[in-house]
Each structure stands twice: as C-alpha cells, then as structure tokens.
Computed example of a mutant assay.
Amino acid sequence: MQDHYTIGKVSKMCNIPKETLRYYDKIGLFCPDYRDNETGYRYYSKESLKTLLILRRLRNLGFSIEALKNSLDVNSLDNLENLIE
C-alpha cells in the first residue's frame, strides 16, 4: 500500500509506542486510515501522521486524552489547531 505506513513504522517514525496507537484507536482518538480485514493490520497515511504529532505535542503540554477526544471531530487538523490557540 503506497503512502501508507504500518503501526510499527508509525511507532518508530513518531516515537510513540504501538500500544499507545492501539489504545488511541480503541477509544476513537486516533484511528488508522485503513485496516486490512484479513490480517487486522492498521495502516496510516502520511497526512494522518501530522495529526498524530500534534496529538503527541498536546499530550506533552498537559492536555488530557478526554479533553482532546472531546475537542475533535473525525481527527480534524483544524480543530486541533484551534485547541492549541
């Protein structure tokens, strides 16, 4: 799958544990762009990685997962930027 990354690759590229990515998916905070029905593998687009990095930065700034989750609608980057402001 071109321009999509597995959970392992995203974990390494963004320095976020795979367990955290699975948890974010489970609670609906940050979901993969595609999931293979046969293997269950999660795939993320390059565009969605921007959202993930912003989420990580907000978490490092002290935002709770609940606050982030309540402020997002469908992983909108615009909403994340508004939350930062």
Rank of each mutant, 00 (worst) to 15 (best):
S76N: 15
C31I: 13
E19I: 05
E81H: 04
R42A: 11
R56G: 14
R59S: 00
T20Y: 01
N70G: 11
P32D: 11
P32F: 13
L21K: 02
E81K: 06
I16F: 02
E85M: 09
G62T: 03
R56V: 09
R59E: 00
E66G: 08
Y24D: 04
D36V: 08
S71H: 03
G28E: 12
A67C: 13
H4I: 15
V74A: 10
N15V: 08
S11T: 01
V74C: 10
G8H: 12
N82M: 11
Y24G: 04
L83D: 03
K46W: 13
P32W: 14
E38C: 10
I65S: 03
N70R: 13
L52G: 02
G62L: 03
I16W: 00
L72M: 15
R42C: 12
M1Y: 09
M1I: 12
G40V: 10
P32L: 10
R22F: 08
S64P: 04
L53P: 01
R42K: 15
V74S: 10
P17K: 10
T39R: 09
L52E: 01
I84L: 08
L83H: 00
G28L: 11
Q2R: 12
S11C: 04
G8D: 09
L61H: 10
Y5L: 14
L83G: 01
N70L: 15
I84T: 03
R42M: 14
R42S: 15
F63H: 05
R56F: 07
D33F: 13
